[in-house]
Design a protein around this nucleic acid. Sequence first.
DNA 1: CCTTTAATTAAACACCGTTCAAAATAAAGT
DNA 2: ACTTTATTTTGAACGGTGTTTAATTAAAGG
Lengths: 220, 220
Amino acid sequence: MKSIILNGVQNMARRKDHSPEELKALVIGAVLGFLQNEPAKKLSLRQLAKMVGYSPGTLINLFGSYAHLILAANAATLDLIADKLSKALVNTQNPQDQLSVIALEYLNFAKQHPFQWQILFEHHLAEEDEVPHWQLSRIDGLFTLIEKCLEQLNPHSQNDERHKASRVIWAAVHGICMLEVDNKLFAQDSVTGESMINSLLSHYLGSWKISNQHQGDDQQ
Amino acid sequence: MKSIILNGVQNMARRKDHSPEELKALVIGAVLGFLQNEPAKKLSLRQLAKMVGYSPGTLINLFGSYAHLILAANAATLDLIADKLSKALVNTQNPQDQLSVIALEYLNFAKQHPFQWQILFEHHLAEEDEVPHWQLSRIDGLFTLIEKCLEQLNPHSQNDERHKASRVIWAAVHGICMLEVDNKLFAQDSVTGESMINSLLSHYLGSWKISNQHQGDDQQ
DNA sequence: CCTTTAATTAAACACCGTTCAAAATAAAGT
DNA sequence: ACTTTATTTTGAACGGTGTTTAATTAAAGG
């Protein structure tokens, strides 16, 4: 297996048969596969390189850095989530039910892929380089989805009211998912992520959808 | 400064004058001081040891491991937050205002100490050792605070209804803080953490407090 | 076939948390 | 005061990390 050593110091560099895009997909697959069983803390560039049969350096000049490699994996995760959400929506018409489906599907993903989901939010880029635009547009798509439901829920609502409400709902659902995945709810067994999401949506939306029925007087 | 070298290989171990408790406080102070300016990612045991003038090994057999050192610093942070919350509450009587004060004070802490706040939730212990009980009781104290407000808000509510609502509120507020600190809200400037918390509390509580006024029929 | 270009690599670098035997100190015994 | 014992504290070593770089190889162009 080891190549021939000549001259005391020697050799290597055998070109594999993967295009850059194939290799990227291979690596991202390895990341997500690893995170199915092991926490993000245990992931490393060197292990990853071993898994896909390339050297650490190859992965670095493919993605730019280890941080950007993780970012690429996170982008794939976001795509996967967006796909699940839109698929879950096709059989639901009522806008409040749609929001419920979105939130519960999101929770479901977090519970089924806790490590993959955690790394989405625990991975911080160095402050010098900003989040790439393609990442931003993915997130924007999720917000737009929520805002559309809100518009159906209350057609009299203003744009900026829906904008704010979408952020509140997203953040709240996200907080519930996070504490559920981290097991930091310290709640009795009857209180699950599902029941919390139901409580949140029914109460928040119940009040929100009637708050602007007449002459647009916002509460806050 | 360097001790005398004799015999080719040499010396060291000058006993400093700190009791274990003093040293712990010194280290925790160094952690929190560091996190005022630098992200958790850049913190390390070795730098920390240099800051307080001890060797890495000393800190390890003081706290057990680097992970437990961070845990101790997080405990100090939780105490600090609990202290701020209870102090902020003394001038507020109305229970809904109290909840608002709690949430806004919590948000304020997160914004003023983002790195210290982030490490509270991004630090995961290895699964083999559980979260210590003194940590759990601290968190339980925060929940009890919220549940007391909810009881004032709706004296007819059941114990388990308040239990659930306290978790929903806490998780939602937490989610808002997290996305605000991480700059992941992608919202227009008018939508701030404060306005989101106000929206969340007014709508959620507005519905919640009347949901059990008569014969205890819960929505979920 | 030779040259150029691009891909891939091993090795080196500067870190990291942890372990451990040895060194230095303090405390106890005489 | 001296010796012994016990306790801190440490440097050095170990195996790991992400990243850089010079060398090597394969492929492409002429």
